[in-house]
């Protein structure tokens, strides 16, 4: 549906004179195309605008590989900046300090919190840790059972939560149980909620006060559009999230939400969900996501080598 960004940029430079170098003029025009590509990938309007402004400044007069065409040069710079913004190195979970450590999942309805809780438990168990799954969603029909089923499948113990106990009390009780049974990683699955639902947002704040949390992971759907910034900003504002999980990334979404969320929260994207299976959790690769946001896979590997 969309023209490849490389083609579009080459088009720009063909139309312009003096296409041997990156000048203020030709960069401006090329950056318009980059901005379009970002918006098509669902990068937030303002994030795209700021990104482009920043990159333009950096690109003017910059020396780049002679073997590349101006279009490729621009892409190389844009890609590098995108990678830098998405976060250089992969970030690990914070699992040191006093045990058990506790991870809380939070996010909008249906983003993938329960499934990701299961995936994390599987991953940690494989690493030799002793995870404990805690269902703290008392609202969604069969939410507790859903996590129980995942726990059973994995052979990971699940806290016997009931829908008549307040989530904050469930969490307190689960911490006691975990300490007694020597589990070292508590994973709290919370109910999906809207960022503008103040009473449900304060429920999470209550848990945060009652329990020492090592990680608060904001779980977001990779298909999210422009609203990603509003949601992420509010969750981060209220809870000071420690990381992000981007789910449903195995599909064909361009995943611009990754850039939006990273930009407004400054928090690292730690994992991506690549399927419904409990083994479909991968560490986040900024370079892959950058290529994807730009709508290009193979072209980039060529450029990167130059």
């Amino acid at each position: 549906m969309f023209e490849n960004l490389t083609d579009r940029l080459e088009g720009v430079f063909r139309r312009l004179r003096g296409h041997g170098t990156l000048t203020e003029d030709n960069i401006q025009e090329a950056m318009r195309e980059v901005r379009m590509a970002l918006l098509e990938a669902d990068v937030h309007f303002k994030v795209a605008r700021d990104f482009v402004a920043g990159v333009t400044e950096k690109a003017i007069g910059r020396e780049v590989a002679k073997s590349l065409s101006p279009g490729q040069q621009v892409i190389k710079i844009v890609h590098e900046e995108l990678v830098a913004l998405l976060g250089g190195n992969t970030e690990q979970l914070r699992l040191d300090g006093r045990q058990p450590v506790t991870i809380m999942m939070a996010g909008l309805q249906g983003s993938g919190k329960t499934t990701t809780s299961g995936k994390l438990a599987a991953m940690l168990k494989n690493k030799g840790r002793r995870p404990y799954l805690v269902p703290a969603d008392i609202y969604r029909p069969a939410a507790i059972e859903q996590l129980q089923v995942l726990g059973d499948k994995l052979g990971v113990p699940v806290h016997p939560s009931t829908t008549d106990t307040r989530p904050v009390d469930i969490c307190r009780q689960a911490m006691v149980a975990a300490a007694e049974k020597n589990y070292d990683t508590v994973i709290i699955d919370t109910a999906g909620r809207l960022h503008i639902d103040e009473s449900l947002m304060s429920e999470l704040k209550d848990i945060q006060e009652a329990v020492q949390l090592s990680e608060i992971l904001f779980v977001a759907d990779a298909m999210t559009g422009q609203d990603a910034v509003t949601v992420a900003e509010k969750f981060n504002h209220d809870l000071a999230i420690t990381g992000v999980v981007l789910t449903k990334m195995e599909g064909d979404a361009r995943g611009g939400a990754a850039l939006s969320i990273k930009s407004v929260t400054g928090k690292p994207i730690k994992f991506v969900g690549m399927g419904e299976g409990l083994d479909a959790l991968e560490v986040f690769h900024p370079d892959r996501t950058a290529s994807r946001i730009l709508g290009m896979g193979d072209v980039l590997t060529l450029i990167e080598k130059a």
């Binding site: 098509e40 669902d42 909008l108 298909m223 999210t224 559009g225 422009q226 599909g251 611009g256 939400a257």
Partner: peptide, 12 residues
């Protein structure tokens, strides 16, 4: 369709 969906909605 989820209202928070971006441009991927078309492909869906």
């Amino acid at each position: 369709i989820d209202a928070t969906t971006g441009q991927n909605g078309i492909s869906q």
